[in-house]
């Protein structure tokens, strides 16, 4: 049943470019998809470990800059009169480096903040995002500062024996984003359903009890932060090569807020939540554009978020799932529990 819903949803999403010819809408779907990947990565932390990364856009932005600079090349002066010259590499390598370096940043942020629990992580992540934004703004030689990095190349996929396929069209980029989003979704699903995922949940529910059975808090949270940051970095790289221009505004706090809204409205701690919330809040601007000025739209977002949480307090996906199971268990008797087939009376 669940698998059927997933397959149907994927098939529906995959069919979109076949019937949707409006480039404006397709563009909105691509950028929305990129932000959905970001929201999924945020959900891994917020929904499955309870840690709020309020500077999450930093990992996204780092991914964007790393990928852009890898594929554009740079020539910068270092202290002591040295110069560091990097000639352009294929964008696909930029994509890989974006994942690695964003993940590394996630590691350091985690290392810094997870020794102490509570608001500490929130503060460290906010500060981290601000510091990175200032670096991007002021290290003009590397990043062009407010002038932005422009002419970022499209991603080109190497096809063995056939050369390369450069993804120029909206349709191609749509499928690229869809595939990366699917991989991220499956990765997170596997992770949270694994033994590691149970440790994360245990920590979130009752940390004292979790450590008493041997779960290492710092290690678990740090691994989650690394994976979350790496996925956000992948999204940032897609963003850079699709929009093809990035400036330090990518690090703006409002972008993190957008991701948080996507996660909360769709339902944190649910795999599909960020996808649903992301689609709603990614496409809302499209719907509101004819009737509202961009500044006024933020008020509408707030209104929509409050309305959703008023009707579905745990977010769309978990609240609807809860109602569905309640209705079903009301009509049919619960299946008897079957555990294991072993005849052992006591653990060996």
């Amino acid at each position: 049943m669940r698998a059927a819903v997933t397959i149907l949803a994927v098939a529906a999403l995959a069919s979109v470019p076949l019937w949707l010819r409006d480039p404006y809408l397709l563009n909105a779907l691509i950028t929305t998809g990129i932000f959905v990947i970001g929201a999924m990565s945020l959900n891994l932390l917020l929904g499955f470990t309870g840690q709020l990364s309020l500077g999450h856009i930093a990992f996204f932005g780092i991914g964007a800059y790393v990928s852009a600079l890898t594929s554009l090349g740079f020539d910068i002066g270092l202290p002591g009169g040295f110069r560091l010259v990097h000639t352009p590499w294929p964008p696909i390598l930029g994509f890989v480096l974006a994942i690695l370096i964003a993940g590394l940043c996630g590691y350091f942020v985690g290392l810094l903040s997870f020794r102490v629990r509570g608001a500490y992580f929130v503060i460290v992540t906010i500060s981290f995002a601000e510091v990175v934004r200032l670096v991007a703004l002021n290290w003009v030689e590397l990043t062009q500062g407010p002038l932005a990095l422009t002419n970022i190349p499209f991603i080109a996929l190497p096809l063995p024996g056939l050369g390369e396929l450069t993804l120029r069209t909206k349709m191609q980029n749509y499928y690229l984003v869809l595939v990366v989003a699917l991989i991220a979704y499956l990765l997170i699903a596997r992770l949270v359903h694994s033994h590691f995922g149970r440790s994360m949940r245990g920590l979130m529910e009752n940390e004292t009890l979790a450590v008493s059975v041997g779960i290492d808090v710092t290690r678990t949270l740090t691994i989650a932060a690394v994976i979350s940051a790496a996925i956000a970095g992948a999204a940032g790289s897609l963003y850079a090569h699709y929009i093809r221009i990035i400036d330090p505004e990518v690090f703006a706090f409002i972008n993190t807020v957008t991701m948080v809204i996507m996660v909360i409205s769709g339902g944190k701690g649910s795999l599909a939540g960020p996808v649903v919330g992301g689609l709603i809040f990614g496409l809302l601007p499209v719907a509101l554009r004819p009737v509202m000025a961009p500044e006024a739209q933020w008020i509408a977002y707030g209104g929509v978020l409050i309305a959703i949480l008023f009707v579905l307090p745990r977010g769309i996906v978990p609240s609807l799932a809860q109602r569905l199971t309640r209705r079903r268990s009301g009509t049919t008797a619960l299946a008897p529990v079957t555990l294991t087939e072993t005849g052992a009376k006591e653990p060996a």
Partner: peptide, 14 residues
């Protein structure tokens, strides 16, 4: 969750 100590597998394997 309590079985954590016996369930350690490499993350990539999982």
């Amino acid at each position: 969750i309590g079985l954590h100590r016996q369930g350690r597998v490499r993350l990539l394997d999982a």
